[in-house]
Design a protein around this nucleic acid. Structure first.
Length: 221
DNA sequence: TACTTCTGTTTAATTACGTCA
DNA sequence: TCTGACGTAATTAAACAGAAG
């Protein structure tokens, strides 16, 4: 997404683990810290010149790349590296060891770094999905709240009507009716006229047949 | 306008812990 | 039961951008 602090590091895709280790040992000195400093001010979103082999792996010995003073050195992946990782992630969100090693070699990173990137990427994906789900549920809640308000109002009006003129109430067309399928438990709202047979009985007698609705009417008290 | 400082965000890396072969 | 590999969740800290003065 963004980047880049172009930093020199010891590891490269060309270096064997052994040479890497030796080099890291040799540079447990102020020079190492100097080599890890950014070469450029590094504006975000600006691609750095091809750095494969120069960066990645940052301060990486096997201990995870802390500076000589114990401070953690943070690697910034280049735009290209991020793109390759993203592509790979889209193809398969988890890696087997072979894929991990191949990606690491291709990008000039340690397998561990690739692994960490995928871990973090999965976490970000999950977080984003959670946010989407949350938004969806919020909208559902709002819709249901509104529906509930509407139904409450309807009930109130019907009760009032029943008090004022019971005769008219008995002969009016049925109010909104909620129906629920006993087997799939899907609820829908419709006119009770459509469900007159269901209201008559047997709608809730075992629930083996789908979409036999249960009529729900306002209580007659 | 150029600078410094502060603050919030992003993300690489670490740690702790659970699961499974 | 123990072990190692691998996963997730939570957290830390470096790098960065942008606002404010």
């Amino acid at each position: 997404m963004e980047d880049l602090g172009l930093s020199l590091s010891l590891s490269s895709s060309l270096a064997s683990p052994r040479t890497h280790h030796v080099a890291a040992m040799l540079l447990r000195a102020p020079e190492k810290r100097f080599l890890e400093m950014p070469l450029l001010p590094a504006k975000r979103g600006e691609a750095a010149p091809d750095q494969e082999g120069l960066r990645g792996g940052g301060s990486d010995d096997e201990d995870g790349g802390c500076g000589i003073d114990g401070s953690r050195k943070k690697l910034r992946l280049s735009k290209d590296q991020s793109a390759v990782l993203e592509d790979s992630f889209r193809e398969h969100p988890t890696l087997n060891p072979r894929q991990k090693a191949a990606l690491a070699q291709q990008l000039g990173l340690r397998p561990r770094q690739v692994e960490v990137w995928f871990q973090n990427r999965r976490a970000r994906t999950k977080l984003k999905q959670t946010e989407v789900d949350c938004e969806f549920l919020k909208r559902c809640c709002e819709t249901l709240t509104e529906e509930n308000r509407r139904l409450q109002k309807e009930v109130q009006e019907l009760r009032a009507l029943k008090l004022v003129s019971p005769h008219l109430y008995m002969h009016m067309s049925p109010p909104t009716t909620l129906t629920m399928c006993p087997s799939c438990e899907r609820v829908s709202s419709s006119s009770a006229a459509n469900n007159a047979n269901a209201a008559g009985g047997g709608a809730n007698d075992g629930g083996a047949v789908c979409h036999r609705p249960i009529a729900v009417r306002p209580q007659q008290s």
